[in-house]
Design a binder for these strands. Structure first.
Length: 581
RNA sequence: GGGGCUGUAGCUCAGCUGGUUAGAGUGCCGGUCUGUCACACCGGAGGUCGCGGGUUCGAGCCCCGUCAGCCCCGCCA
């Protein structure tokens, strides 16, 4: 039916007779001469219809955008001066000798062909008419890249001796962690499966079984609220290995990430630098610091002196830390900029933002008095610089300044120090307290092994215990998460005890994992990489929705197919379910 | 669960301090045109101003509610 794809035609094809199939991208009707831009997966070629074949020209004149046609013709060099340097196929055109309409097309609800500077249709419409939106070359390229990244990840892991093994989609609900999507069982009325939040326990059981090196391109489901970088169903590159330690996991992960970045055309180097969680929080106010930018957070509590404002001295007296960012060029920011930065800090629950700037006239701004006359010199605040600070509990102040830091970099348009800033964040706390209930909860999951140096504190001071958990971070984005797991059933029991789980609860929730550990478990650990995010970063997309063929909206709706929908009464009856009002 | 932004022609948008007949570009339909490439030119059709209620002599504009999309906080072991 076809001899070539539109986008592949070049000067070397001149003189050949070709048959093409594709969509009418645009038509330019000059009367006695009609040009059709024909589009397929590979690109666009210009088809020229002339007066030699009047009946073919007549068909061309009637073609509407997005009609599917087949064209037969001769590849010809364009006349002198008529080449289009902006098109890969711009040196040639196809002189049509025959054309056939294969699929007539209604006028598209949203435009596929977009002119220079033309805005995209609203995202709601793009999602509703996804089949049209996916015809846009940009989205096409994103999904093609995604395909290549998947193939590359598979090839890389397989070459390293990892076996690709599938795990169940219908699995067991897990009471903690994210909310599960539940699936009712017809055979067992009143009982439910859950869709997996991740194959965590299964992959550990595979290690117990001796598979040694496992990976899976795993679909995961979490019924939580969405973000630009969070979808309710998403894809992980899930990896686990036995008889390994942290260094082995880092090496494998780095090999995969370097391969993926290379596939997308970026040369990056391993090993990646490493940073303890505590440093990341104190210097960058985030457990996923963007190391392309400076603007580090400083502890200036020690600089508070008798000439500082009462407010700061009192805070320091209470034992609170005062932390601040010095921003080169910050004095050029407007009052409005500072007001908005203050709002940003407040959305992160900070009480406010102190700020002052230094110009030749001196140090000015609402925070100048509070910081005191000697603060500027103590800080080394130079002309043109600004200082922005927060006071209060670290748990509030550091994330708030972390947010301010990113906003500052954006507003100041600071040039990134490097293009690719990978970093491993490690030594996470094993537990944290629920701020509302004060209950000890695992920071990640309860199978994460404690750091060997801190095991003694498990009983005496659990909040001091660091875990063998690690996150690879790239340019301020968390790429994944992993850990070395607990293999000693007694240690696992001790962790469950710390979490206040009763033996009955443990047996009910994790009995099958404990049973596995008791059966002889090799030391093991692994990682799960957020594949959609990686695809988004490498495609240069701003939203996960641009690298997923059929994504959900922020309200978890599928606009194209229209899901979810109310269940039919017959279906509910079979499942013996009712809908509460 | 909370906060913010947006919703006007198929699409992208404008619409002043509330004022009488709601506009532009593009697309669509008809016409002219042999080298265009966002073709050009002439003509035409096209509106539940998201939806519901209220205030007012009068509402696209003000108020209340609601729906949808997007962004953020909470949430996401």
């Amino acid at each position: 039916m076809r001899t070539h794809r539109c986008g592949e035609l070049r000067k070397v094809h001149v003189g050949q007779e070709v048959k093409l199939g594709g969509w009418v991208h645009r038509r330019r009707d000059l009367g006695g001469l009609v040009f059709v831009d024909l589009r397929d997966r590979d690109g666009i070629a210009q088809v020229a219809f002339g007066p030699d074949a009047p009946e073919v020209l007549a068909v061309a004149a009637s073609l509407t955008p997005e009609t599917v046609v087949s064209v037969r013709g001769l590849v010809a060099a364009r006349p002198v001066g008529q080449a289009n340097p902006e098109m890969p196929t711009g040196e040639i055109e196809v002189r049509a000798t025959a054309v056939e309409v294969l699929g007539p097309a209604a006028t598209p609800a949203i435009p596929v062909a977009r002119g220079k500077g033309e805005e995209l249709a609203a995202e709601e419409l793009r999602l509703r008419h996804r089949h049209l939106d996916l015809r846009r070359p940009e989205l096409f390229r994103n999904l093609e890249l995604r395909h290549r990244l998947l193939q590359r990840a598979r090839a890389e892991l397989a070459a390293l001796g990892f076996l690709e093994i599938e795990t169940p989609i219908l699995t067991k609900p897990t009471p903690e962690g994210a909310r599960d999507y539940l699936v009712p069982s017809r055979v067992h009325p009143g009982e439910f499966y859950a869709l997996p939040q991740s194959p965590q326990i299964y992959k550990q059981l595979l290690m117990v079984a001796g598979f040694d090196r496992y990976f899976q391109i795993a679909r995961c489901f979490r019924d939580e609220d969405l973000r630009a970088d969070r979808q309710p169903e998403f894809t992980q590159i899930d990896v686990e290995a036995s008889f390994i330690g942290v260094e082995d996991v880092y090496a494998v992960t780095e090999a995969v990430l370097v391969a993926l970045w290379r596939e997308a055309g970026h040369e990056v180097t391993a090993p990646f630098p490493r940073m303890p969680y505590r440093d990341a929080m104190e210097r960058y106010g985030s457990d996923k610091p963007d190391l392309r930018i400076g603007l580090e957070i400083r502890d200036i509590t020690g600089l508070i002196g008798p000439e500082s404002g009462e407010f700061l001295r009192a805070a320091a007296q209470r034992g609170e830390r005062v932390r601040a960012i010095v921003a080169p060029g910050g004095a050029a920011l407007s009052r409005k900029d500072f007001d908005q930065l203050t709002e940003d800090a407040k959305t992160m629950r900070a009480a406010g933002l102190l700020w002052a700037k230094r110009s030749p006239d001196g140090v000015t701004g609402p925070g100048a008095k509070a910081l005191g006359p000697t603060m500027a010199s103590a800080l080394g605040l130079a002309d043109g610089e600004a200082v922005l600070g927060c006071v209060g509990a670290d748990a509030v102040v550091l994330p708030a300044l972390g947010r301010v830091r990113l906003e500052l970099a954006r507003r100041l348009k600071l040039p990134p120090a490097t293009r690719h800033a990978f970093v491993w964040i490690e030594q996470f706390p094993m537990f944290e307290r629920d701020p509302e209930t004060g209950v000890l909860v695992p920071m990640h999951h309860p199978f994460t092994a404690p750091h060997p140096d801190d095991r003694a504190f498990l009983a005496s001071d659990p909040e001091r215990v660091r875990s063998m958990h690690y996150d690879p971070v790239y340019n301020g984005v968390e790429l994944g998460s992993g850990s070395i797991r607990i293999v000693d059933p007694a240690l696992q029991q001790q962790v469950f005890d710390r979490l206040g789980l009763t033996p009955e609860e443990v047996q009910q929730r994790f009995g099958f994992l404990l049973e596995g550990l008791r059966a002889g478990a090799p030391p093991h650990g692994g990682i799960a990489l957020g594949f959609d995010r990686i695809a988004m970063l490498l495609a240069g997309a701003e939203s996960l929705r641009d690298v997923i063929a059929f994504p959900k909206t922020t309200a978890a709706r599928a606009l194209f197919e229209g899901a979810p929908v109310p269940a039919r009464k017959e279906d509910l009856d079979v499942l013996r379910l009712g809908v509460a009002k």
